[in-house]
Simulated scan of single mutants.
Amino acid sequence: MKPVITIEYCPKCGWLLRAAYMAQELLTTFTDDLGGVTLRPSETGGAFIIRLNDSILFDRKEAGHFPEIKWLKQLVRDQVNPEKSLGHSDRP
C-alpha cells in the first residue's frame, strides 16, 4: 500500500490555496510513489501540519514558518523513494 500525505490547514487563516498548491506539487512529483494527498481543514487555529501516514513531517507552529516546496519534496522523497532524483530540486 502506497503512503498517503495529509495536509491539515487552518481554513480561518485562508491557507487552503497554499495547501492545495503543495498537494499539487507533491502529486505531480511523486505520481508513482504516493497513494494520494488529503487536504484536511483543521479545527485548531493557525495549524498547518503535513503528515505521511500517521507521522508528522512538518508542523508550522513548531518550525515558525511554512515549508519551502523544494525542501518539502526532498523530505517526502527521503521517506517514500530515497533513490528518486528530483532534478533541479536536488541542487543547492
Results as ranks from 00 to 15, higher is better:
I49P: 01
K2V: 02
E62Y: 07
A63D: 02
Q24I: 01
I5V: 15
T29G: 05
E62I: 12
V76W: 04
E25S: 12
P82W: 06
V37R: 04
K61S: 10
V37Q: 04
N81R: 13
C13K: 10
P67R: 00
S42K: 07
K84V: 00
G14C: 06
Y21H: 14
L75R: 09
E43G: 12
Y9H: 09
D32L: 10
T44S: 14
D90Q: 13
I56M: 06
E8H: 03
R18F: 09
L16D: 09
L26T: 09
R51C: 06
N53V: 02
S89W: 15
G87I: 08
Q79T: 00
E83A: 14
L17S: 15
Q24P: 00
A19G: 06
P41K: 07
S42E: 08
S85E: 12
F66G: 01
G45T: 08
D32W: 03
L16H: 13
R77F: 06
A23S: 15
E68K: 12
Q24E: 14
T44C: 10
Y9C: 03
P41N: 07
P11Q: 05
K70I: 10
L27I: 07
G14Q: 07
T28N: 14
E8A: 12
W15R: 07
A23M: 13
E8F: 01
V4Y: 03
G64T: 01
L17E: 15
A47D: 11
T44R: 15
W71K: 12
H65Y: 02
R40M: 11
W15L: 11
I49L: 14
L17Y: 14
P82G: 06
R60E: 11
A23T: 02
F30A: 02
V37G: 05
P11C: 04
G46L: 06
S42I: 08
R18S: 13
H88A: 13
R60H: 08
R91T: 11
T44H: 13
L39E: 04
G87D: 09
K84C: 01
Q24V: 02
D33N: 11
K73T: 00
L57V: 04
D90I: 04
Q74H: 06
F48P: 03
L39R: 05
I5R: 05
E25A: 15
A19H: 05
E62K: 15
V80G: 08
W71E: 14
D33Q: 15
F66A: 01
G35R: 05
E8V: 08
G64L: 01
K84F: 01
R91H: 11
S55T: 11
T29D: 07
L27D: 12
T44I: 15
T38Y: 10
A63Q: 14
G87Q: 09
V80I: 15
K84P: 01
E62P: 02
R91D: 09
V80F: 09
